[in-house]
């Protein structure tokens, strides 16, 4: 059939060699026996899956923030009949979340070095931070100055804070399960990639908080 159609420049370009990362030509075949059996970062499928989940959740956050400002355009005053949230607990939690990125980074680097002891040291510290920011989050809800059923302002603020809180809880649960597994086994090298990807998700939960913090605590002050 190849003679019946003209060659296509992209399709017909000479292929780069497929003999990468230990794959070798063996007669008519490409032997992949020597390839690594897992990978970190963009090499890993789970990393891409996590990225997809982060894209979904990031879109949900963005949409909720858009809804916040949309409702604000419909209102004569903002916040609606209540003072803005008090800054103390939210700001403290922002600092805790940012600080948690440090042990999280230790866990990630230890995982990339396949350093089991390092992972076992870092993950419990991460979990301690998670407990701290979940407890402080409970206090945050008390400083919103309104309930979810007070008015539309209360509804959207509770929703923003609630959405992020579910992420704190899932992040805590993921990390706790992974930490137990790293202590009890059964272990294989791929679990270090899991720890590294869990750390990426943790960073997402921390970074996603910054715009939400700005919307909840600072937008009503301007």
């Amino acid at each position: 059939m190849s003679a019946t159609h003209p060659p296509y420049p992209l399709g017909a370009a000479p292929a780069p060699s497929l003999e990468t990362r230990g794959a070798v030509r063996a007669g008519d075949a490409l032997d992949v026996r020597a390839l690594p059996s897992y990978g970190f970062g963009a090499s890993s499928l789970m990393w891409w899956g996590t990225l997809g989940v982060m894209a979904i959740e990031g879109t949900v956050f963005a949409m909720a923030a858009v809804a916040y400002f949309y409702l604000r355009t419909q209102a004569d005053e903002w916040p609606l009949g209540v003072p803005p949230p008090k800054l103390l607990w939210g700001t403290l939690n922002t600092l805790i979340l940012l600080a948690s990125a440090i042990p999280n980074q230790w866990a990630k680097r230890a995982a990339q070095r396949h350093d089991l002891e390092g992972v076992r040291r870092a993950l419990p510290i991460c979990i301690a931070f998670a407990v701290a920011f979940i407890v402080v989050r409970a206090f945050e809800f008390t400083t919103l100055e309104c309930r979810w059923d007070t008015n539309a302002y209360g509804s959207i603020v509770w929703m923003l804070l609630g959405l992020h809180t579910t992420h704190l809880l899932t992040d805590f649960a993921d990390t706790a399960v992974l930490a137990v597994l790293m202590f009890t086994g059964p272990l294989e090298g791929k679990r270090f990639a899991d720890v590294a990807e869990n750390a990426v998700y943790w960073d997402f939960v921390v970074l996603a908080w910054l715009p939400i913090y700005a919307v909840i605590y600072w937008a009503p002050r301007f």
């Binding site: 809804a67 949309y70 409702l71 419909q74 209102a75 609606l80 979810w148 059923d149 007070t150 008015n151 539309a152 302002y153 209360g154 509804s155 959207i156 509770w158 929703m159």
Partner: peptide, 21 residues
């Protein structure tokens, strides 16, 4: 989710009487 919350727990996302739209 906003709709079911308006219906179940009394939020006001779509209720113009209380700032919703």
């Amino acid at each position: 989710t906003m709709l079911i919350m308006d219906r179940l727990v009394g939020t006001h996302f779509f209720n113009p009487a209380d700032g919703g739209d």
